[in-house]
Nucleic acid binder design. Sequence first.
DNA 1: ATGGCCTTCTAAGAAGGA
Length: 260
Amino acid sequence: MPVRIATYNVNGVNGRLDVLLRWLAETGPDIVCLQELKAVDERFPVREIEAAGYGAIWHGQKSWNGVAILAKGREPIETRRGLPGDPDDSQSRYIEAAVGGMLIGCLYLPNGNPAPGPKFDYKLAWFQRLQDHAASLLQLDAPVVLTGDYNVMPTELDVYKPERWVDDALFRPEVRDAYRKLVEQGWTDALRTLKGQERIYTFWKYFRNAFARDAGLRIDHVLLNPVLAGRLKAGGVDRQVRGWEHTSDHAPVWVEIADQ
DNA sequence: ATGGCCTTCTAAGAAGGA
């Protein structure tokens, strides 16, 4: 049986619990990385998620951020919470676990707007810490996935109107460079590799009917280490979820990994 | 070129998102 791994910026795990549970029931991913829980640890809906058949670990925060890893029929074994490199960073943006012999890194990279400014500086510093940690993960022989909301459109192909985003923190050259350098360490951008030059979006603004116009961005990514890249069989975006009532502004992204 | 929408926290609007 292939393993299906998904990432989903849920934009409020309690406010959109119905959407999350419906998506889990309809698509049944084996491993799920969630971002933007927007809830403290005590308010993570662990009962409902367990009732749906998933074990979970999570790292919450009041109002903002928050990440979680879900595993169908098993408990993720937590290996890390928070990126190394800055003990003063109190934002909940990274959690990592071993699930069924794979190492899963779940991340929510800072937005960084407005740029330039302190938020953009924080984004670049966070990206550097991610690069450093990712390099250490590449030393492992085990299968490794590094996935989540990267808040970067890697190329012009990933933006509905690139010229409108040139000064945005999600598309500025420094951020695209950081993503490119990360991938060039030896990671495989799963969706781009599978889809060639096809347009792929994972996010559509709530404003101005963006989803209906398909005015989207590709900012949620699944990166695979070399062991897993050779086992990549399929991948896609669950676009239908973005069309549901009361839904997140992101759609889930998934890959399927073949057995060894 | 701007503002459009949506969440949380907490009780009206502010802040953050992208």
